[in-house]
Design a protein around this nucleic acid. Structure first.
Lengths: 165, 165
DNA sequence: CCTATCTCAGACAGACTGAAATAT
DNA sequence: CATATTTCAGTCTGTCTGAGATAG
């Protein structure tokens, strides 16, 4: 039994696909009712991924011009999914960030609702639940470093954006 | 330690959010490059959720008219994300279903890429990995029933769609 | 003739851009 | 004056619907 870890990993990847497809299926009705354009959805994803950012950076990430990014941010704010805040460092800048509702929406859309997951968890026996808790906690520790870092470089970004004068 | 299960579940839900946000972050660049309309994305999600379905059912699920659903399916097929197949039961009907590429795209978009997950798994110690494998396998068993059932009712659906004659 | 799907034409919404205006 | 953002005008792509055409 030399390749136990590899087998285990393979098994985990398989179960991962199965479980999270099921969890995400919870949010399929939400997808169908969704009244957002693709541009707005991309904006939500970008904001969730990159954290608060300036309009210029927002434009760059989305691959569109600054007017488009500005108008897009506007629409998101009107939908109550994002907010603007003055950049404390430079008051010409505006930082866009997801509102709690925006965070919630993207989380639901991509991760599904947690109620169903909880119900499934209830059906596990004690030692399976413990194993899952242990493994997931360890995994969370490994991936945990991801969430920081980005906000810092976000604010500093936006230098020399346009090569053509 | 009376409420151990509840605590454990709470901990799992927390770790779940953290881990899967990180995993999904791997597909953020894919989101930004995505060249699909919202209608098309919804079509993909509907197809993944509901399995192969007739145009009429597709229209119903998406909440649009049949011509729109037909044209939408057409666009998906042109993109190589879906295929049509004759319904063996009734040859007037066409069944739309995701192509392998379509399946892959939705999976990537919603679940993220697995390569990064695998790399993270490599960093877990043996017993954490075993616990995760055990717990996830058990969970997969619990949710496993979800995938069937739907195809059957899909084909039978489509009766008395319009109340106004 | 009825049903499922597709084609067509026209209406409509939203996104994007370059140029000009505004704020710091 | 320079920079970041916003407003404006115009264009363009893509969706939706209802009516009619085409298969089974």
């Amino acid at each position: 039994m030399g390749g136990c870890r590899t087998e285990l990993e393979q098994q985990i990847l398989g179960a991962y696909g199965q479980v999270f497809r099921a969890v995400q299926a919870t949010s399929d009705p939400l997808w169908m009712e969704l009244d957002l354009s693709m541009a707005q959805l991309k904006g939500l994803v970008a904001l969730r991924s990159g954290g608060p950012m300036t309009i210029s950076h927002f434009a760059e990430v989305l691959g569109v011009g600054k007017p488009a990014a500005s108008m897009l941010a506007d629409g998101l704010v009107r939908h109550g999914l994002a907010d603007r805040a003055d950049d404390p460092v430079d008051r010409r800048r505006t930082l866009v960030h997801l509102s709690p509702r925006g965070e919630d929406l993207v989380a639901r859309l991509r991760q599904g609702g947690r109620e169903r997951l909880r119900a499934w968890l209830d059906q596990l026996d004690d030692s399976d639940l413990e194993g899952l808790a242990r493994g997931l906690a360890a995994l969370a520790g490994v991936v945990g470093d991801v969430d920081c870092v980005q906000v810092l470089e976000t604010i500093g970004a936006g230098a020399s954006p346009s090569p053509a004068g």
